[in-house]
Amino acid sequence: MSDTSSAYRTVVVGTDGSESSLRAVARAGAVAGASDATLVIACAYLPSVDDDREFARAQDALGEDAYQVVGSHPAEDTVRTAAERAGAAGARKVRTVAVEGSPVEALLDVVRREDADLLVVGNRGLAGIKGRLLGSVPADATRRSQVDVLVVHTTG
């Protein structure tokens, strides 16, 4: 951070609309509210697919990442719902963005564009051998982030 204050100025959190990710959004909202920071809620999405067969192929290719939002309209709905959750948790200044691309790339891009100083991610995908071997959104984002990362315990 460029100033000497310890408070965060801009907090970025990602959501895919799942209950787990909305718990991370609520925590990010509370942190942003306590710091009087701007909260930027991001949702990464894949371009819409025209038919069910193509969607099924996309889900097969994504495997456990099939929770990724497909289409910009669902992504807009997702961030609108998340903004309500963040406001209820204490965030006073909230902006939302829907970004086409993979979750990690989209989050890191938003952090850079917004000059954020905190990235909040849920811990979904961190547990288990598959997460350790293949990586996950929170692990990848944490490893590659140039700013502080808060990993929120959002899963059972």
Rank of each mutant, 00 (worst) to 15 (best):
G17Y: 07
K93C: 07
G90R: 06
R53T: 13
L133Q: 09
V25S: 08
G128W: 00
V13E: 02
L133G: 09
S72D: 10
Q146E: 15
P103D: 09
A89Y: 09
S72K: 10
E19T: 11
G128Q: 04
D77H: 12
R132A: 15
E114W: 10
T15Y: 07
E54L: 13
V31Q: 08
A75C: 10
V149G: 03
A86G: 07
G135R: 00
S48G: 13
M1W: 08
G128T: 01
A58H: 00
V69W: 06
T81V: 10
A7Y: 05
R57I: 09
C43L: 00
N123M: 07
A34N: 09
S145I: 02
T155G: 07
L107I: 10
S72I: 10
V120G: 03
V94G: 04
E54K: 05
T10P: 00
V99M: 04
G90Q: 05
P74D: 09
D3Y: 13
R92Q: 15
R23N: 03
A58I: 02
N123Q: 04
D65P: 00
D109Y: 06
L126I: 09
G156F: 05
R132Y: 08
Y8R: 12
D50F: 12
A30I: 00
D140W: 00
V110F: 09
G101T: 12
M1I: 10
R85I: 14
Y67M: 00
A106R: 07
L108I: 10
A86R: 05
S21H: 04
D50N: 12
D36L: 12
Y8I: 08
A139E: 06
R113H: 14
R92T: 15
A116H: 11
V147L: 07
A75Q: 11
S48A: 13
V70F: 14
A7G: 08
T10R: 14
D36E: 15
G29H: 03
L134Q: 06
F55S: 06
A83T: 11
S6A: 12
P138S: 04
D109R: 14
D65E: 15
I129Y: 04
R9G: 08
